[in-house]
Amino acid sequence: MTTRIEAAGLVRAFGARRAVDGLSFTLAAGECLALFGPNGAGKSTALRLLAGLLSPTRGRASIGGVRLPAPEARARVGLISHRSMLYEALTARENVRFSAQLHGLRDVDQAVERALVALRVADRADVPVRALSRGLQQRVAIARAIVHGPDVLLADEPYTGLDEQGGAALTTLLRERRDAGAALIVVTHHLHEGLALATHAAIMRAGRFARFERAEGLERDRYAAEYRELVA
């Protein structure tokens, strides 16, 4: 199977504090890692390193065999962060379109339409983002992040603010992408939400993996109990 994400000894220090302190793992096509951990464990920093937004203090990260932050590597990543990354004065369509253009997509219109429909925001696509509710904004943010069909999708608390319909749309989308051969990392505080699609599960604490294992056969209730114990 093709390797999508590869992290080798990834360290990121801020001053003397190591937010990420030696992460090594690989994710192949079609794999999905559910990443758990308490606040300040380094999950968001890890995602930012894998998206090429931060340069590692030590170690390296590659996307599809290309080392970050090369443009060819960044081009294959989609990042959903806890901030919307949208321009509130522009419409949903304009926001998604801008992203599609920056990625140099050949058929921009079609890609934008597909992303908006997938998140079920097509009918509100021509209103400035500012006028949309928090949940709809989150849907547009996700549409923006996946418009270029990334084969690595990094999602930081993607379910935040979504209603049932939005959550279902997101789960469908993530499953489709996974089954189409993308590698996913989903950071979340909800074990059930995270494990729904996961092939792997990991718990981060103080910048490292406290656990990293295959998700199949993982007993959720026991895992939840062990998680609480580990984090306490």
């Binding site: 090429g52 990354m85 949208l86 509130e88 992203s99 990625h103």
Partner: peptide, 13 residues
């Protein structure tokens, strides 16, 4: 404002 700079930085430009 909403972290849009991150989107610019992840884009392959």
């Amino acid at each position: 404002h909403d972290g849009a700079m991150d989107a610019l930085l992840t884009a392959p430009v």
